[in-house]
Design a protein around this nucleic acid. Structure first.
Lengths: 358, 358
DNA sequence: CTGAAAGCGCTAACAG
DNA sequence: CTGTTAGCGCTTTCAG
């Protein structure tokens, strides 16, 4: 890891572009000249290579310190052919679930000398291919994709090439396409949630799911369906509502809609595939006069910070968000370190957190 | 703006590093050779320069398309001496307030061909100087700082140099140091909040403020104090509590503490300087048996999405978060476009949003 | 309208 | 231990 000179506050004497000679400004050559050594030596000192005499090293360091010289990473990057940037694609970083994952990514990236390029794919959808082009154009060394839509696009549009690009899928993934991934066992998680509801005596369990175009949504639906079936309950279509957006309002609306079913079919419980949704569900239920959990039990998904703080505190499936991000970053880094190492897919454990809403 | 070839899915024939000749792989030279023109011509086509014969342009474009060539931005960046990256420093991007501002930044940055380097300063505090070094090392062309601690450090440590670096302050700022900024009038905003409480008949108004080391916190405190004074109420010290962290728990704790005051001094209202805090306050109040707003009125700050959705819906001071971010990015971009243009400080309007908590 | 050539600032062989 | 040198791949004068 390169030395990190802490510099003093003198302003650099650099002007606009350093268009002049090549000797004066802030270049490594200028430093070398002033110290009376070669650029190679300065470079070696800067990069912490061992083969420099202590005295020489000191002189270089002193000049660097005095002049406030900073390496130009643009040049270094071209030379070493790496940007030291990791691209993170997220559908919506206002969502606390993704925010926490992104934190995990950022933290391991930084530890390894990488910075994070953040792209909110929701900001301009349909640019899926464009994001991966950032890799091809060397703007980033690798990518982590948290956006299910983009993951699917990538798998579809680039079947052959996709697995060759240095990226990993996080949360949404297809084990069959050869792209490294990290996520949870969505089927089991949903199964666990519904089984808990059943254990609590609820049988008519509704599912508020996201777009079942996504694999994770399909898996959660299947978990829900099968858990119900194992209790001898048929998973009715009217109990299943799909939303395009996982926010509070969508949850409130969906809950209200569900409550319009004739009394004998009305759900006794609702399983929402995201906590933000579930919070909306709880509110929506309250606004149509239903009590939680007395009238309708609610289970969420993710275990964001807010989940424990709403009234009533939300029972939910916890995902290890931070670890999801950290693992994704580590997988990617491993792949960058050795492009032909086979990087595995990893499933992290989820956990049913029982609070008061169910 | 460079042309954006939409490419076809053929995998590139590139191998590891392109370590070979210089003619074959994915370089602009390779494309030039295959088409039978010079690299200059290819470059001109790629960058949309007008002075290329249509027929030549077509041939180049066809080859680019066929070969899946992508420009190497590492090289481009060195040559043009710009990274086309904007650094955003945020204390905590899990906080929905910052998340929304960051969205604003991202959106205008993208529109202008820049990407965003995101640094969560909370992740490793004390590195303030290091962040600005990213500018000196040409890792980013400019920076936007949303972190009050970092803004102050920068103003202090780099008094002379600071104003020379291409950065802008957002939300926390000191008009006197010559760094462009965007924010709101915190004094007036706090004043408005407290005046509203007074108009509602509350006189003992508590303030839950963040660290008054920050300018914005000082301004809000002054607004609170003066609004109280104008109503003939002395702003008592026991009504003022400072927290280090603006999250739910801090709010709940502070509220509980405030409710331990002897009945004749107990606040009839609480003004919390952030909605996340205010949500905690409402919960904390409820948990010690106080009703909102009947026993204690609550006003928050920011107007994050959650504010309207809690029970009771939160009265708050709305900040134009999105615009704050967009404006910050625009100011920065203007400064980059013309380094010696004098970029102004701008104050955006806030707004009192009256809901049910006060 | 097109080509040749000069670097951007740095790292990494390769020679001493 | 240190210096010389050759590019990384691109943009951009400067000449035709």
């Amino acid at each position: 890891m390169p030395a990190h000179p802490s510099g003093s506050p003198q302003p650099e004497n650099a002007d606009a572009q350093g268009a002049g000679e090549g000797a004066r400004g802030g270049s490594i050559a200028a430093v070398a000249q002033r110290v009376g050594v070669s650029v190679a030596t300065v470079s070696r000192v800067l990069n912490g290579h061992a083969n420099v005499r202590a005295a020489t090293r000191e002189r270089v360091l002193a000049e660097v310190e005095a002049s406030g010289y900073r390496v130009n990473e643009l040049a270094r990057n071209l030379r070493t052919a790496e940007s030291r940037l990791l691209l993170t694609m997220v559908p919506d970083f206002g969502n606390p679930f993704y925010a926490e994952i992104v934190r995990g990514i950022d933290s391991v990236a930084r530890q390894h000398g990488y910075f994070m390029l953040l792209c909110d794919t929701g900001a301009d959808a349909g640019r899926e291919r464009g994001y991966f082009d950032l890799l091809r154009r060397h703007r980033a060394d690798g990518a982590i994709c948290l956006d299910p839509a983009t993951v699917q696009q990538a798998n579809r549009l680039m079947a052959a090439e996709s697995a060759a690009l240095p990226w990993v899928a996080c949360c949404e993934f297809d084990p069959d396409v050869g792209v490294p991934f990290v996520g949870i066992d969505n089927y089991r998680a949903a199964h666990d949630a519904v089984r808990h509801l059943i254990a609590r005596g609820r049988r008519r369990v509704a599912l508020i799911n996201s777009d079942e175009h996504y694999l994770y949504a399909q898996q959660r639906r299947d978990g829900w369906r099968d858990a119900l079936a194992e209790a001898g309950v048929e998973a009715r279509d009217v109990w299943r509502v799909n939303v395009n957006c996982l926010d509070y309002d969508a949850g409130a609306q969906a809950a209200a809609a569900l409550m319009h079913l004739p009394a004998e079919h009305a759900p006794e419980a609702i399983f929402a595939v995201s906590d933000t949704l579930a919070v909306g569900v709880v509110n929506g239920l309250r606004s149509v006069g239903r009590r939680v959990p007395d009238d309708v039990a609610v289970v969420g998904f993710d275990d964001i910070a807010l989940a424990a703080r709403i009234d009533p505190p939300l029972t939910t499936i916890a995902q290890p968000m931070r670890e999801l991000g950290e693992t994704a970053a580590r997988l990617l880094l491993r792949r960058l370190a050795d492009p032909r190492a086979s990087v595995p897919g990893v499933l992290l454990p989820h956990r049913l957190v029982i609070r008061e809403s169910a």
